[in-house]
Design a protein around this nucleic acid. Structure first.
Length: 279
DNA sequence: GCCCAGGTGTCTG
DNA sequence: CAGACACATGGG
C-alpha cells in the first residue's frame, strides 16, 4: 500500500480506506476491481461495475497474482538477506513486501523511459499527462479510473504531440518507436518470455533505440519477472545504499557489485526492497 | 543560480 | 573503445 500510494499523481490505481481500486480491460470490457485484505490475510477481490463471469474470474486472479508477485517464496530471499549487511535490516522493516510488478509491457517500457535522467516527481508528471491525454477512463461514483494508453494510439502520434506533454524529443521518439514495434508484432512480452533465458530477452531489449542497460533491467525486473534483473546504474538504488550504509558519498558501480555478490537470483528483490526504503 | 534527477544516443579522438 | 556532451525540465 505504501509503495503503491507513493505518488498522488498515480492514475492507474486508487487507494482509499486500505482498499485498492484498479481498472482493467478484458475483451473490450472495462473491469473495476476493488482489493482489500481479509482478517485471515487473504486478498479479497470485488468487481464493482459489473457481474463477474467464470472466465473473467480466472483472468483477474492471474492478474493479481502477477501484479503482487504472489508465487515467489520469500523465505528463500529472507534466508540470503539475514546474512547480508545491506538487506538484513530492510527485510525486517518490510517483512512480507513483494515486488510490485507492472503487468502491462508497454506501460513498463514507457514508465522506465519517462524516468530516464529526471527526478521521480517529474517522471510521475509525465506519466500522468500521458495517461490523461491518451488513456481511456471509466467514471464510477464520481471518481475517474484510468487505463494506460494502448500502443496502437501512441504509434500514430507525432513527436510534436508528445513534446507538448514536456517529454524530450528523444523520449517522444523512443515511445512512438516502441509503440510501432509492438503494433507491428516485432516486440511483445510473450515473445521475450519465450526466449530460452532472460539474458536473451535483455539482449533483444537493448538493441531497441531508447532502451539501454538500465531500462532493460528495469523492465525485466518490474514486468518480465526476471529474479536476477539488476538495474545497477539506478540512482535510486545508489541513494538507497548510501542511506542504508550511512555513506558520505554514493557507492561506485564496483562497490555495488561487491555488495551484491551474494544476491544471485534475488537482485530484483534486493533492489525493490532498497527502493522501498526511499518511499 | 546551481546541482541533481530511478539514462541513452551520438559524436569525437 | 572510452569519454564528453546534449537532451530539457522540475525540484530542492
Amino acid at each position: 500500500m505504501k509503495f503503491l500510494g507513493r505518488s498522488d499523481q498515480e492514475r492507474l490505481h486508487f487507494i482509499e480506506n486500505d482498499k485498492i481500486r484498479k481498472l482493467l480491460k478484458l475483451h473490450d470490457k472495462k473491469l473495476l476491481l476493488e482489493l482489500s485484505c481479509r482478517t485471515n490475510n487473504a486478498i479479497e477481490i470485488k468487481l464493482l461495475n459489473s457481474r463477474i463471469e467464470d472466465s473473467t474470474k480466472i483472468f483477474i486472479k492471474n492478474y493479481v497474482r502477477e501484479w503482487f508477485d504472489l508465487e515467489t517464496d520469500l523465505a528463500l530471499f529472507y534466508k540470503i538477506a539475514a546474512k547480508d549487511k545491506l538487506l538484513k535490516n530492510l527485510v525486517h522493516r518490510f517483512y512480507g513486501l513483494r515486488l510490485i510488478k507492472i503487468y502491462d509491457f508497454f506501460q513498463a517500457l514507457c514508465w522506465a523511459i519517462f524516468g530516464q535522467q529526471i527526478n521521480l516527481a517529474f517522471a510521475y508528471t509525465l506519466y500522468r499527462r500521458f495517461i490523461e491525454n491518451y488513456g481511456e477512463k471509466l467514471t464510477y461514483k464520481n471518481q475517474d479510473y484510468w487505463l494506460f494508453p494502448n500502443s496502437d494510439i501512441i504509434a500514430g502520434l507525432s513527436v510534436a504531440e508528445l513534446m507538448k506533454l514536456q517529454l524530450t524529443g528523444k523520449k517522444s521518439e523512443y515511445i512512438i518507436g516502441l509503440a510501432g514495434q509492438i503494433e507491428e508484432g516485432n516486440l511483445s512480452k510473450e515473445s521475450l518470455l519465450e526466449k530460452s533465458d532472460f539474458n536473451e530477452a535483455k539482449n533483444a531489449l537493448v538493441k531497441i533505440r531508447g532502451i539501454g542497460p538500465w531500462t532493460a533491467n528495469y523492465v525485466l525486473m518490474r514486468c518480465l519477472g526476471d529474479p536476477s534483473a539488476f538495474p545497477i546504474e539506478d540512482v535510486g538504488l545508489h541513494n538507497a545504499i548510501k542511506l542504508q550504509l550511512n555513506l558520505e558519498q554514493k557507492p561506485t558501480i564496483e562497490e555495488i557489485r561487491n555488495l551484491a555478490a551474494g544476491w544471485t537470483n534475488w537482485q530484483a528483490y534486493a533492489t525493490f526492497y532498497l527502493y522501498r526504503s526511499l518511499v
